[in-house]
Amino acid sequence: MGVIEIFIQVIPYLAVFAILGYIAKLQQNRAKKREEEQKKGIIRTHYIIKTEKILTIFFIVGGFLFGGATVASAIQQDDLFPPLVFSIFFAISLIGSLNMIMWKLEVNGDEITWRSTFGKKRTFQFEDITYCERKKGSMRVYVNGEKLFTIDSNIDKKEFMEDIKRRRIPVKSYWVNKHK
């Protein structure tokens, strides 16, 4: 096996590490900026929480690749299994892309505007939040005891959690409550 063949096999792993490194660097820069603002006593009253753009692009590219693989395998195969597997991955990529493009949480002072994956918008105040629940790095937010939305673990939610802490909104652990 030649050096070129080994290099070709390693390229996907290098691409994944580069993307993850880029995301980590972005989050570090944001954290550093927030830390500097906190040292100066600046409390941001308007911010938007969204999924990282690079992850969105990753899911969109995956959707195109799996969509093409589904069509190509359906044309070339007599067997139904390969197109079915590719179509499942295509559907996951499509739903993931839609979620990453549409989902948004905007905080403007005490007002919170949340837009779901399917475009449903709800506006409420911090005082409406009954409690939050932490589960595996993600945060579930409850309004009047009803789960309103979840901020996934791959989304930088540090500013939102600082607001939750500053307003003394209770944060419970899902696993502690589940196993009592």
Rank of each mutant, 00 (worst) to 15 (best):
M100K: 08
L148H: 13
C132P: 10
K53D: 08
F17H: 12
P83A: 04
Q38I: 11
W114R: 04
T51I: 13
L94D: 06
N144Q: 15
L148V: 06
T117Y: 03
S93M: 15
I88P: 11
V143R: 09
K32D: 12
F126A: 08
G119Q: 09
R134I: 07
R34W: 08
E52I: 05
I95V: 15
I43K: 08
I48M: 13
Y131Q: 06
K147F: 01
V10L: 15
R122A: 09
R44E: 15
P83E: 01
F90A: 06
V141H: 01
N108R: 11
V10C: 13
R30G: 07
L94E: 02
A69R: 06
V10Y: 11
V16E: 07
F90N: 04
E35V: 02
G63S: 12
P82D: 08
Q28Y: 03
I75P: 04
H46T: 15
G21A: 04
F124H: 08
F66D: 00
E106T: 08
R122K: 09
T51E: 12
I48K: 15
G137K: 01
L26P: 00
K135Q: 09
S97H: 03
E146N: 14
M100I: 06
I112V: 14
M100V: 01
K39L: 11
Q28G: 02
S116H: 01
R34Q: 14
T113N: 05
L105G: 03
L55V: 05
V141P: 04
S93A: 15
E36P: 10
V143H: 03
E106L: 00
V10G: 08
L80K: 06
T113Y: 01
E37N: 07
F89Y: 15
Q28E: 06
K33W: 00
G67H: 02
I54T: 14
N108L: 04
Q27D: 10
T113R: 03
K40R: 09
L105H: 04
T113S: 07
S116W: 01
V61L: 14
P82S: 06
V85C: 15
G21V: 02
I129M: 12
A24S: 05
M139T: 15
R30W: 02
K104L: 03
I19C: 02
D78S: 14
A18S: 11
S116V: 08
K32C: 07
G68L: 07
W114Q: 08
E146M: 07
D78F: 05
S93L: 05
L14W: 07
Q76E: 11
I60E: 04
F90K: 04
R140A: 14
I49R: 00
I49V: 13
I19R: 02
L84D: 03
I48N: 11
N144W: 03
N144A: 13
L26Q: 08
E37H: 06
A24M: 02
Y131P: 12
T45H: 10
D128A: 10
K25M: 03
E111W: 08
K120L: 08
S87T: 11
